[in-house]
Design a protein around this nucleic acid. Sequence first.
DNA 1: GTGTGTGAATGTTTTCACAGCG
DNA 2: CGCTGTGAAAACATTCACACAC
Lengths: 210, 210
Amino acid sequence: MSQQIPEVVIFRLPTYLYILNLLDEENVEIVSSQELGARLQMTPAQIRKDLSYFGKFGKQGKGYNVKLLLSELRRIMGLEREWNMVLIGTGRLGKAILDYSRMTLKGFKYVAAFDIDPALVGEMAGDIAIQHISELPQTIKTKSIDIGVLAVPPSQVQQAVNQLVDCGVKAILNYAPVATQAPKDVRIRKVDPGLVLQTMAYHLQSLGTA
Amino acid sequence: MSQQIPEVVIFRLPTYLYILNLLDEENVEIVSSQELGARLQMTPAQIRKDLSYFGKFGKQGKGYNVKLLLSELRRIMGLEREWNMVLIGTGRLGKAILDYSRMTLKGFKYVAAFDIDPALVGEMAGDIAIQHISELPQTIKTKSIDIGVLAVPPSQVQQAVNQLVDCGVKAILNYAPVATQAPKDVRIRKVDPGLVLQTMAYHLQSLGTA
DNA sequence: GTGTGTGAATGTTTTCACAGCG
DNA sequence: CGCTGTGAAAACATTCACACAC
């Protein structure tokens, strides 16, 4: 039953959610770990084991009820509520992030955007009015912000992290290509396509060398 | 010495490269696995073991020469050459990617951009003239493209993947929030901030529940 | 018969701990 | 001495294989 759940399992949950949403749209009602495995290129055993960390959602001889498993997963993953985010840094990168997010994010909402440049205050970034960074603490409280997203220049990242941490934000997504430090109860994740490309280069190269 | 190198190790190489670049800029000449571990929040033993898969780069009693290790890593990772990329899909997402990339990518270069919409052909996306998708095979050959990047609507992703695969492209970065299939010698990586946010939501939730 | 849930077995990754080099 | 490089041990993750439920 309920033990310490491996971090890798958590990383796979979004994949399960994704494929189940797809199946649901296709009006599939029941799915076996066999079929899920075929779609996701993973072994049925792994899927069953992963799900078993959270409970017993299947029926022997049949498989999993798609709608049921979907709603259980959403609950487990904390996606039954909306999460409020702030964007810090509204330059080209910041605007691109807002733009991108509008098309792909469900359950996560940018509710405020900040910049350090007073000249930008009051301008619109998408449908959000840019505020000055000095108003951050106030807004985090009143709009109950859960997640901070950083799109500031490398030199300002640590400062921004500190401010978010001081305001009690426990999750930060960092789009700047620099590492930062924070207390260990604060979860920081760096998003950087450059890193992904580098691992691709490694494999491409060994293709030629092999 | 040289055995099968674990995939996790490959994923960590960019991190090592990153921190070494930083140290080099700080004019640090020698660094121990101890210090690297402190900076990267990982154990010294893991760093030594990881590096040992590729050779012996350190000096006992001293540590690693930063410049030497840097250049060795660059060689190992295939970053001594430039890699050519094409962007497929030049809508808002595609333009945002080009924009973002200009500031963060070293060693990776977008050399062409394609769209299926004839109305967009000839327009500029950043400093690249948009071409019609029908010209893709020709361009991949003449400009020796290594990596394809997808920013097309979900419904068109599989088609775009097929075209890239037919042209011999072995590495694809997919920014669309859908899974795709390709022969297993083709490396596809999905980049999706939504997935990262979902794992964050899980942890935030358990913070409240615990 | 069919497919889940799960201990046990296997495989992989991380950490330990120390010989040996500078 | 100090710190690397590395077998061996420990921890962790995946896969197997089967009892049991439908």
